[in-house]
């Protein structure tokens, strides 16, 4: 028996909107730790790791570890039917081939339940090693989204370089080239507007903008984004989910042949 009650249901709606274009089908894993997911896109270039900790739910009952295969597009369709202020409860019985999403309006005058068919998904969990990153950039998530969108109108790939000067995003395409440099800036009115750069070693890595643009669908989840880079390792683009957990996107770099 599984019953997870999330008062801020809009968080789950935003989570689905952020990953449904990158991943088609995925297993949601439920344990005493929380509600989580790890999945790769179909070409195995990017990986998404989601965690919603059990403490973040108003009610969290998970009698035994459960893995539920879901089509994320279908799940997003159902969650779209929840109001932004609705409380969402996820329910499943042991051995059942369905999951139920229950939506309650804040005033309790409208209660809906949507039952979705589960699916068998063959997916292997990958071990993500704990890494000390050479450079960690924290910046406003809207700024990062703007940069990825702007650069993708010029080129297909972005080179992200971190030096003492700041973080540079560069692209080249048929019509020309573009460079955007963001310097560390902590003298801002709101801490979330700051750009903070921690660098141990200079880093320069090349990535496909098609994927970074997918990641920025998570912008509504958090006002800041953290980009962790090490030479010759996948970049981690992390959006924290208010006191509950995170969505982390890992993207394999382009490597010189």
């Amino acid at each position: 028996m599984l019953e997870l009650r999330l008062v801020q249901g809009s968080l789950l709606k935003k989570v689905l909107e952020s990953i449904k274009e990158l991943v088609n089908d995925a297993n949601f894993d439920c344990s005493s730790t929380g509600f989580s997911l790890q999945a790769m896109d179909s070409s195995h270039v990017a990986l998404v790791a989601l965690l919603l900790r059990s403490e973040g739910f108003e009610h969290y009952r998970c009698d035994r570890n459960l893995s539920m295969g879901m089509n994320l597009n279908n799940m997003a369709k159902m969650l779209k039917c929840a109001g932004n202020d609705d409380i969402i409860t996820i329910k499943a019985d042991d051995g059942s081939d369905t999951v139920t999403f229950m939506f309650e309006s804040p005033t309790q005058d409208k209660i809906s339940d949507f039952e979705m068919k589960l699916m068998d998904i063959d997916s292997e969990h990958l071990g993500i090693p704990e890494a000390e990153y050479d450079a960690i950039v924290r910046m406003p998530s809207a700024e990062f989204a703007r940069i990825c969108k702007d650069l993708s109108s010029i080129g297909d790939t972005v080179v992200i370089s971190v030096t003492k000067e700041g973080v540079k995003f560069s692209t080249k395409g048929d019509i020309g080239a573009a460079n955007i440099v963001c310097r560390q800036n902590t003298t801002v009115d709101k801490p979330d507007d700051a750009t903070v750069i921690e660098m141990k070693e200079p880093v320069s890595l090349q990535f496909a903008l098609r994927y970074t643009n997918f990641f920025t669908k998570a912008t509504p989840l958090s006002s800041t984004v953290t980009i962790s880079l090490s030479n010759e390792l996948p970049v981690v683009v992390e959006y924290k989910i208010a006191e509950m957990g995170y969505v982390r996107f890992y993207l394999a770099p382009k490597i010189e042949e």
Binding site: M40, S43, H44, V45, L126, L233, P234, I255
Partner: peptide
Amino acid sequence: GSKQATITKFFGKA
């Protein structure tokens, strides 16, 4: 030229 690497090149099975 550069080649797109895959995630499985870096992360192994858990």
